[in-house]
Nucleic acid binder design. Sequence first.
DNA 1: GCAAAAGTGTTGTCGGTACACCCATGC
DNA 2: GCATGGGTGTACCGACAACACTTTTGC
Lengths: 203, 203
Amino acid sequence: MGVAVDLAIFTVQEARLELLLIRMKREPYTGQWALPGGRIRGDETVEQAATRELYEKAGLQQVYLEQLYTFSEPSRDPRARCISVAHMALIRGDAPLRTTDKYSGIGWFPVTRLPPLAFDHKAMADYAIKRLRAKLEWSDVARNLLDKTFTLGELQRLYEAILGKRLDARNFQRRAVAIGMVKDTGKMRTGQAYRPARLYRFA
Amino acid sequence: MGVAVDLAIFTVQEARLELLLIRMKREPYTGQWALPGGRIRGDETVEQAATRELYEKAGLQQVYLEQLYTFSEPSRDPRARCISVAHMALIRGDAPLRTTDKYSGIGWFPVTRLPPLAFDHKAMADYAIKRLRAKLEWSDVARNLLDKTFTLGELQRLYEAILGKRLDARNFQRRAVAIGMVKDTGKMRTGQAYRPARLYRFA
DNA sequence: GCAAAAGTGTTGTCGGTACACCCATGC
DNA sequence: GCATGGGTGTACCGACAACACTTTTGC
């Protein structure tokens, strides 16, 4: 029985949460968009396979990776029986993508406007978005989507993009500091309009 | 590559959270305790395989089942490469167990005193306990461990057994009703010492 | 009456929300 | 000066912990 990994790779760009999709070359989903992924090898864990796919197919390294759920409907892959372990990855908005000739296309899509997806990848994407949103509320996963230092305004816009709703800036800032998630670096963000903001880093 | 399911089957008996373990007949873990489980077949999902194992190996039916995590270390099974999807199951304390000649023994163990476990089953058991405790705090999974009706005292003792700590009865009762988790049935628990308690059911 | 469990009332604290207000900069 | 985002102060509300107290039964 085949075992594969599939990846929901997220980034935040221009205040939008986006998902990385590839366009398939091979039958039976030629031309369709799907999550990147592939078979696991005999000597690696599913996490290692996911890390490898991330590098081989998109040129990404050193990214946050988390196992999500195993999808195992016998009919999920029309070609052959193959279960797939879905993962979530988070990368900074400016990371450059490498393309591969394995796919006929690769691109970022806002999660609010995803095209139809191959296999059961719609369910995987939905699951990943749900998990990311939940995790944002009680953890500091957001650190994997931002630079080392950032302003509270930047952090807030990241949260708003992922959660898909507006937050109160005053309460957001106080809370971020109060729960010890971020620490003041003592530096300021200059060179922009309006009052300069303090730069923070994750604690 | 082999794909298996393993099951962390919980029950609460005499105010203790207990885990169902089987004793292995075959090499290389002959005589060792382990979580029940087995290979999945070509025409079933991992959840269906877990349900089937639950019935075949322990005679259990209609139980709460939840997929947890996929364990995939290449060396996790010394016999052959085989990944395993860990699941959690919850059953009522009085459920009768069927034995099978596939194992040389089967029994309940308090989670505080587990014997050494075969494969990576210790990690699976730890993961399952953690998940069960977390889920107890915000969901009504407890319903799968109790009868249709129960007193708030019984529900509290269940919570205390799983969480491994004492709770304030007065706050516990008020909260259970306030958040709408349980509803008063209007009936009372009679035939026991002391003041009779109201019987509740899950909402 | 007494022990034990069931159940109610009250109070304080803490986290979160709402929102008025001040600050510092570019233009 | 004024627009704009950065940042502080404060008041209110609901959840929850702590704990005093009453109720109802078996013995």
